[in-house]
Design a protein around this nucleic acid. Structure first.
Length: 439
RNA sequence: GCCGCAGUAGCUUAGUUGGAUAGAGCGUACGACUGUUAAUCGUAAGGUCAUCGGUUCGAAUCCGCUCUGCGGCGCCA
């Protein structure tokens, strides 16, 4: 099917000069006088100024066009002409206009508060900022699929309703499931470990729900995780994949979304610099040393790193940093003991977190998975869980288990970091948080 | 779970040692204007100062409850 109209981005070009075009979109701005009218038209590809005079259009069309509210949908016909006074360098000399649907006064105007914009999210989503973010988000998730498929991984989709927890029961959303209790998934982990003995190398990009009572600019109740799990891989091998994956994503966004990055005022050179650097990997124990020697913070060995400590640590690194071998005690039950660690005063796990620079926090968390059934049972009991609830998971260790590792990447955290967003809530179209479920 | 902040026209807000008819900008309506850049100029409409209760001769202003939202910690991606 050939469309008879064009996208705005396709006519903002020298070779369109003088050509008669039809554009379809929404009124973005209106300005003008009694005889001269300037309408800025918006479509998904960009904006362009449309100019019309009363003389050329006639009273009927001119007055109709002049009465239009912002966000009215219109079909504009006209000739493309270069003009230094037009934003973007080109404008449309209008010679015909059809109103598809007039808009009521648009509630979002010049000054808006964060809160109001979130209430009006269904309309604010049309803004240049959010449109650019959503386009980059689309590139980002597409890049994840391309990256893993290119390496021979299979997409595996886990269930969203789950009977078990995995990251601790207190953060589960409970759902009434035919008068029984069931939960929204916190992680694909347990199911991925089942699938890995069939497909060996798998990945997914899927929604995750956590009822953490966190009210920060880095948390969502509903967010998307891009996870991978692979048989026969160690956690150190998986770290390299995580680094390559994120570099692949950044490269793809730089290649496909330069205009969107510009609209968001993102420093593209800074992004590009991440591609050339080697990203550091240090142990938890080394991290404590750095914090003590350079950061002036003394942390007792065995405590998990807190936000303030992670932020301080990242002041000494200019690319994502991977911290490995956290104390076993503080880790989830499925993360196994690292027997090879040399510098640690206590038992550590075969696990890692990747921290983003500039205070964006943990963007990846992963580990090797415990294969010893007795160790698993023990860790579960220690966390106060009943191993009976994990019977099928234990089966995975009874029938030909092999070493395997994986990680989860927070899609919104990564997007917020790449786009330098103030708040993670802008990294997802309709954020769900402790206090907000609307729109 | 702990700590903190905010709520005044559709939007952004001014206004607290308690004493106005609650003031403005944007938006909207009407009018002027043939090159505007979220144009400019004029006129107008638009408010039970989040709710409930208390103190007071008098409350947007002081106190308390509630509601709504926001941020920080902890936890996590």
């Amino acid at each position: 099917m050939v469309r008879e109209w064009k996208q705005i981005a396709d006519v903002l070009r020298e070779d369109c000069e003088g050509s008669q075009v039809e554009l379809r979109g929404w009124i973005y701005r209106t300005r003008g006088s009694n005889k001269m009218l300037f309408l800025v038209l918006r479509d998904s590809s960009g904006i362009i100024q449309c100019v019309g005079s009363r003389n050329d259009l006639g009273d009927g069309v001119f007055d109709l066009a002049r009465s239009l509210m912002v966000e009215s949908s219109v079909i504009v016909k006209g000739r493309i002409s270069p003009d230094s006074r037009a934003p973007g360098g080109f404008e449309v000399q209008v010679n015909g206009m059809e109103v598809v649907s007039p808009a009521e006064p648009f509630p979002i105007t010049k000054d808006q508060s964060e809160e109001y914009l979130r209430d009006m999210r269904h309309l604010w989503i049309r803004s240049r900022k959010l449109t650019s973010i959503m386009r980059i988000r689309s590139t980002l998730t597409g890049a994840i699929h391309d990256f893993f498929r290119g390496m021979g991984f299979h997409e595996f989709t886990p269930p969203i309703f789950t009977p078990n927890s995995c990251e601790g029961g207190s953060t589960l959303f409970e759902v009434n499931y035919y008068d029984r209790k069931i939960y929204l998934t916190q992680s694909w982990q347990l199911y991925a470990e089942a699938a890995v003995f069939a497909l060996e190398r798998i990945y997914d990009v899927s929604p995750t729900f956590r009822a953490e009572r966190s009210k920060t600019s880095r948390h969502l109740s509903e967010f998307w995780m891009a996870e991978m799990e692979s048989a026969w891989m160690t956690y150190m091998e998986v770290i390299e994949i995580a680094q390559e994956e994120i570099k692949f994503i950044i490269g793809r966004i730089l290649e496909r979304n330069p205009k969107d990055l510009e609209i968001l005022d993102v420093d593209q050179e800074r992004l590009r610099s991440y591609l050339e650097k080697d990203w550091s990997v240090i142990t938890y124990t080394e991290a404590l040393d750095i914090l003590k020697d350079k950061g002036g913070m003394e942390i007792e060995w065995g405590k998990d790193l807190r936000t303030i400590e992670e932020d301080r640590l990242m002041e000494f690194f200019d690319a994502p940093l991977t911290v490995i071998q956290y104390p076993k005690e503080a880790m989830a039950f499925y993360k196994p003991l690292e027997g090879q660690a040399v510098d640690a005063p206590g038992p550590v796990a075969k696990c890692f977190d990747m921290l983003a620079p500039n205070g964006y926090g943990e963007i990846v968390g992963g580990s090797e998975r415990e294969t010893d059934i007795e160790a698993l049972m023990g860790s579960l009991r220690k966390e106060g869980e009943d191993p009976k609830n994990y019977e099928w998971y234990m089966d995975l260790r009874r029938y030909g288990s092999v070493p395997h590792s994986g990680y989860g990447l927070g899609v919104e955290r990564l997007l917020a970091w790449i786009c330098a967003l103030d708040n993670i809530k802008d990294a997802i179209p309709f954020p769900r948080t402790l206090k907000r479920t609307n729109p």
